[in-house]
Nucleic acid binder design. Structure first.
Lengths: 230, 230
DNA sequence: CGTAGGTTTGACCGCCTTCAAACTTGGTGG
DNA sequence: CCACCAAGTTTGAAGGCGGTCAAACCTACG
């Protein structure tokens, strides 16, 4: 672990407020590792050995059942994943796979648990992290149950724009195939929804989506912080 | 708060391991209240004042958007809800309504937060509670994205049976209308799925579902602890 | 016994999926 | 630098799952 990596981790909400000795203790035994693209980091059903922190690259969380497959979320730097499985000592509900070459810091679960007990600030931060994860999936479920697929796509585009300073041009951060799965639709259907939205305020060229008329797009998406996030 | 109510709360996973002074302190300021059926306890978008513990009755968690409405979960005694909103100091993502006359213990959020900081055992228990809530909604989303509606119903029936000691007769705990919404389908479609499953190992009379051929039903549901829970 | 509300049924329609084929796109090696 | 290939994307046609609407049917409760 290099010094600057430690500093980047230290800025994370999960680690920001914890006491310095606890943090340094964790960093002693942490190790950073670089994985190639398309590598299965975690398989659903297995047990947690390490808390994962993604420092660079991107990771896809997906789930399988009976031969079907869906993307549950995409994790970008710098953030942690599978904290819940670490806390519960129960099997992962999702698998994780790198989307590109990624650098990931691994913290042994046993040590994380000790640190949680020793440091109330760390414990509170972990609670907030878990609560946020919980809320993310409540939103995901609301999105699926309350909106149809075109509405979900419209809301996604608007949300991406908000994340990027309300820019009028959004570049999709992942392949459309993956985005479709994340939004709970087929690639074909995403393509058609994209075309449908071209009559409602957007223009599309490859991975670039231009928001020409934000109001018309918002009339389809009906953005809501209780679904789309703040 | 009566002594026996305190004892029931004390047995909850969230309160079981905390220190006695912290627990007693919380109980000092807690108060139990009985609400009639169909009362809106919490409205989505508002902020948390109290951590709720349901002692008797049942509560429905639902969400609304753009005039549409869906049930996100049903909470039975004895358990807590909306811990996440309490921890985050952010608005509720879901509303809560009593399904029947219910007794609920209310703990002021500020006091809960103090107790969390003071008592590491309580903090760890809260973390586990949050992690379980997180996992519940990951499962809910997986169920919605990976199974079709008949498969979800079949899995629900098998799960209810498992909860009741693998009894061959399951009595639906809520109106079919509500169950349909929880499973992400319309009442009409639930009715049709129920009929479809009668060719796959079940017999239905009003709210009573008899599992005649568990293997055939399981062939439709393909039960999976990573979706249906343990 | 009557009524209100929940449930079922039927008809119809639309969203979404599936399958197949044509078309882009991006990366690789000649 | 261009040609080529594999992989991703779009398009079309067809069909099924699930939603909507309306009416008939239960059933629970006063």
């Amino acid at each position: 672990m290099h010094q600057d990596e430690k500093l980047r981790l230290r800025r994370l909400p999960l680690f920001r407020e914890m006491m310095t000795p606890t943090f340094d203790g964790l960093m002693e035994i942490a190790y950073a590792q670089t994985f190639p693209a398309q590598l299965e980091l975690i398989r659903q059903g297995e047990y947690a050995d390490f808390l994962h922190v993604i420092v660079e690259g991107s990771v896809e969380l997906h789930a399988m059942w009976n031969g079907r497959n869906t993307i549950m979320g995409i994790v970008n730097p710098v953030s942690t994943f599978i904290l819940a499985a670490c806390v519960c000592e129960e099997p992962y509900l999702m698998s994780a796979r790198t989307l590109e070459r990624s650098q990931i810091v691994l913290l042994p679960v046993a040590d994380v648990r000790v640190a949680l007990r020793q440091d109330p600030d760390f414990a509170m931060a972990a609670m907030r992290e878990l609560a946020n994860g919980y809320r993310t999936f409540v939103r995901h479920a609301k999105n699926l149950k309350l909106r149809n697929s075109t509405e979900r796509l419209a809301a996604y585009i608007l949300h991406q724009s908000r994340q990027n300073d309300d820019m009028d041009t959004v570049t999709l951060p992942v392949e459309k195939r993956l985005l479709a799965s994340h939004l709970g639709m087929t690639p074909e259907n995403l393509s058609r929804s994209m075309k449908a939205l071209q009559g409602h305020g957007i223009a599309v060229r490859a991975m670039r989506v231009k928001i020409a008329d934000r109001a018309r797009l918002a009339a389809v998406a009906v953005p809501d912080p209780l679904i789309d996030g703040p």
